[in-house]
């Protein structure tokens, strides 16, 4: 996540202090710090995690930011962000809503079952996609991997993984292999069972 915060900080035309915060802490956390300093007496819920920086250093940053007082007031309005991110500090992706990665989309363009196999296309091996998740999918799928494995590797919910894989397939980075399901083609399903049976016997 810190990588993501760093790269987004590069893109954003934010202040220098914002960039620093982006590197040092999660962007959400940076926002919370600001809020706390502004409303110090009002912050009674004690939810604030101990800052990663010693107070003196934080003071320094406060000095740096005093040049952009206008923005601070804007940040102070952002209190509603806190309850959304606070409940489970142990969760690694707690600061980003899962479907934020997909731009809120929940539908995949391919029938992606749990066991559907995905592999990186040979033609795309050298490609470096913009989205870090697509890079991870490509790395993961150098040998064929199932949708469930990809979701586990990326530590995202299954539905999010499906959209990400669908996008990666749309842009030609990965191939989605056909999944034999019981409904279509009874013959194919029976053949699959036969192959699984002989495979198990060979184990």
């Amino acid at each position: 996540m810190s990588t993501g915060a760093g790269s987004s900080a590069e893109d954003d035309p934010g202040t220098f202090a914002d960039v620093l915060n982006g590197f040092g802490l999660g962007s959400g956390r940076g926002r919370r710090k600001k809020v706390k300093r502004r409303d110090d007496p009002g912050d009674v819920n004690g939810r604030e995690a101990p800052p990663a920086l010693p107070p003196s250093e934080a003071e320094e940053r406060g000095e740096t930011r005093s040049g952009t007082g206008e923005e601070q007031f804007v940040s102070a309005e952002a209190i509603p962000f806190i309850p959304a991110t606070a409940p489970n500090p142990a969760e690694e992706t707690g600061f980003v809503r899962p479907y934020a990665i997909t731009g809120g989309r929940t539908k995949a363009n391919y029938p992606l079952e749990l066991e559907t196999l995905v592999s990186t296309r040979e033609a795309a091996v050298m490609a470096v996609p913009d989205q870090i998740e697509h890079q991870l999918i490509m790395e993961e799928c150098r040998t064929p991997r199932s949708v469930a494995e990809i979701a586990a590797a990326l530590r995202v919910p299954l539905g999010v993984a499906r959209v990400l894989i669908s996008d990666a397939a749309d842009t030609g980075l990965v191939t989605v292999h056909k999944t034999i399901s019981g409904d279509e083609g009874a013959e194919a399903h029976l053949m699959l069972m036969e192959r699984v049976l002989s495979g198990l016997r060979r184990l």
Binding site: E113, L114, E115, T116, L117, S119, T120, R121, E122, V125, R142, T143, P144, S146, T175, H177, K178, T179, I180, L192, M193, R195, V196
Partner: peptide, 13 residues
């Protein structure tokens, strides 16, 4: 070799 041919992979569950 793993990456060579884009062979068809099948999975079962």
């Amino acid at each position: 070799p793993r990456e060579a041919a884009p062979k068809t992979m099948t999975s079962a569950k």
